[in-house]
Design a protein around this nucleic acid. Structure first.
Lengths: 175, 175
DNA sequence: CGTTGTTGGTTCATTGACCGAACCGACTGG
DNA sequence: CCAGTCGGTTCGGTCAATGAACCAACAACG
């Protein structure tokens, strides 16, 4: 966010948060990380983000302790980017933002979030109405909603058509 | 957010939301609106935002139906900007973002949000732990926390040192 | 062994958003 | 008549975002 002037004058935790995750594309990268996207190329094709911007965002998110860069194979050396606890703690924010967008902007049900244990759709605060508990992020299952396109262009979106748990890695088609 | 490329490819309510409120400064303008800031000049001094940017943000937020421009005096004609229902619906997002910033970034208690009826500090979902209900935005009282500076430079910050309800207009010192 | 393809970047020129300062019109109060 | 306030607009300079090109490391193929 460091553009000429930052929000430093603000004594406010919202401003501090926006310093870190308020830049263009940043929150979408984090959203994808919740969806199980972990690799540079998958972020690239799924977001349609310029390569240089993605590299920069991944670096600052890693530096801020929101993502963790983890070597998952040597030769060729390949790293994946995974959410840390600090990153996972952003789930309520993302959830609130998504709900607002759905209700006041798109009016469409693109993705549905359910409690994996019982299949009940989550309440606004990631609570399970039937179990009466707050559902941990890892126990949330995402399924495509009725208004989501069934034939997306990129392989990552296609992989996301299958129901899956948040945080679990997506399996991109080797096709 | 329209910079060369927008998020149009994304089928996602989060992306749609960010199209509208994801620009630099926008969310801070909305935060100030919750704090009762309504006038151009008050936004200006409290945020330290460039004038042109503020004018642009107020215009797009008004066009998006998040703020409403309301004439409050003729001669000289003066307008104030007030949150609409759509804007007020952003409260859970702001709350989640502020909590995340406080817990994972600043580690400071700058402002405390309480249930005006009983004085109990709000839970993470704007719930009142003692009443057991979700508190309406208009019934939330903001009081300065222990880590907030007691002698801010600008008059708006000074006015915000007094406990006040969200959405109620700030009374800036005529001093 | 050479060629091609994949992955994860970096570099570069262009575009456009943000910045701060100056300016301006309508009005008020002295 | 003059200074001051309010709510902007205008303008030149700077800095970030964009998209295309380039590149290094390695694998797989023939």
């Amino acid at each position: 966010m460091a553009l000429g002037k930052d929000y430093a004058t603000q004594e406010c935790s919202i401003a501090s948060a926006l310093e870190v995750i308020g830049e263009r594309w940043t929150l979408l990268v984090i959203r994808d990380a919740f969806y199980g996207v972990r690799r540079y190329n998958d972020f690239l094709v799924h977001l349609g983000i310029p390569r240089a911007v993605l590299a920069s965002r991944l670096q600052t998110l890693t530096a801020q302790g929101i993502l963790e860069k983890r070597r998952y194979q040597e030769s060729p050396p390949r790293d994946e980017y995974v959410l840390t606890d600090r990153g996972i703690a952003l789930w309520p924010t993302l959830r609130a933002l998504g709900l607002w967008g759905r209700e006041h902007l798109t009016q469409r049900r693109l993705r549905i979030f359910r409690h994996a244990d019982c299949g009940t759709e989550l309440g606004p605060y990631s609570d399970c109405p039937s179990c009466g508990t707050v559902v941990a992020v890892g126990d949330v299952e995402v399924v495509p909603g009725p208004d989501l396109s069934r034939e997306p262009a990129d392989p990552v979106s296609r992989a996301l058509l299958k129901p899956k748990r948040l945080l679990r890695p997506v399996e991109t088609d080797p096709a």
